[in-house]
């Protein structure tokens, strides 16, 4: 009995983070910047899925759309509406860029939910680049569009004069914290959800709690499906909000 329990606990191994390891696709140990890795594979699959949906799915250009075409149109309308409503009409020229971000994140998240898959958006390296790209774009656009008036974003003219320097410091800090929260939110959510599923999967090795663990995995998976979309949506809508600040810096 004791040995059995011991054997079970020895077999009970948790590797919740192993799913995030970056591995070369074709063997070898060294990972150079150009090495094709599982990152390459799953990002490539993301491209393929987006291509299938938005290009192959709409090849009919039908006035009365097929099912896939209406999904593509729905995605287009969803992001377009978001850009127009949140960031304003003059942000429409950024629509392809924002659509790219949304499609990439949403499909990377959903592909990451496939068993045995690799979730590219769970890596800080990926989300940092996405968030920094948004941050730099927004800052550059803000200065190019408004010149020094863009600094009015930090100078709250509606507040009493004495408070303004303090508010300016707070605004400045919050402005530079934006990309940090932007990238941690996405990667953190995705990583945590996947890790929790793996932990429950580890518990499924114990016969007594296996049914409960499987149930928990199922529930967690449902939640993750939701999170996968919501995080993509949140990332995109925050990008729109920042863009609005850059285009119309007045409070």
């Amino acid at each position: 009995m004791a040995s059995e329990a011991h054997g079970e606990s020895a077999g009970l191994t948790f590797h919740p983070m192993d799913q995030f390891i970056v591995k070369p696709l074709f063997g070898g140990d060294t990972i150079n910047w150009y090495t094709p890795t599982n990152v390459t594979l799953w990002m490539g699959l993301t491209i393929v899925v987006i291509f299938l949906l938005l290009v192959v799915g709409t090849r009919g250009r039908a006035v009365i759309p097929s099912r896939i075409q209406s999904v593509a149109e729905l995605a287009y309308g969803f992001v377009y509406q978001m850009v127009e409503d949140v960031a304003g009409k003059d942000a429409i020229k950024f629509f392809p860029y924002i659509m790219t971000l949304f499609m990439f994140i949403v499909f990377a998240n959903f592909l990451g939910l496939l068993p045995m898959s690799f979730t590219t958006t769970s890596h800080f390296a990926v989300t940092v680049v996405l968030a920094l790209a948004v941050f730099i774009t927004v800052t550059v656009v803000g200065f190019v569009k408004n010149g020094t008036k863009f600094l009015g974003l930090f100078w709250v003219s509606s507040a009493p004069l004495a408070l303004r320097p303090i508010l300016a410091i707070i605004e400045l800090i919050s402005y530079f914290v934006r990309p940090v929260s932007h990238f941690i939110r996405l990667a953190g959510n995705i990583m945590a959800g996947h890790a929790v599923i793996k932990v429950f999967a580890g518990f499924a090795q114990i016969t007594a709690v296996a049914p409960l663990a499987v149930l928990a995995i199922t529930a967690m998976y449902g939640l993750e499906v939701l999170v996968a979309f919501i995080q993509a949506y949140v990332f995109t809508i925050l990008t729109c909000v920042y863009l609005k600040d850059a285009l119309h810096p007045s409070h």
Binding site: V22, I31, N32, T37, V39, T120, V126, V129, L130
Partner: peptide, 8 residues
């Protein structure tokens, strides 16, 4: 990181 950033 360089690998991921490049492919991203």
């Amino acid at each position: 990181y360089p690998n991921q950033v490049f492919w991203l």
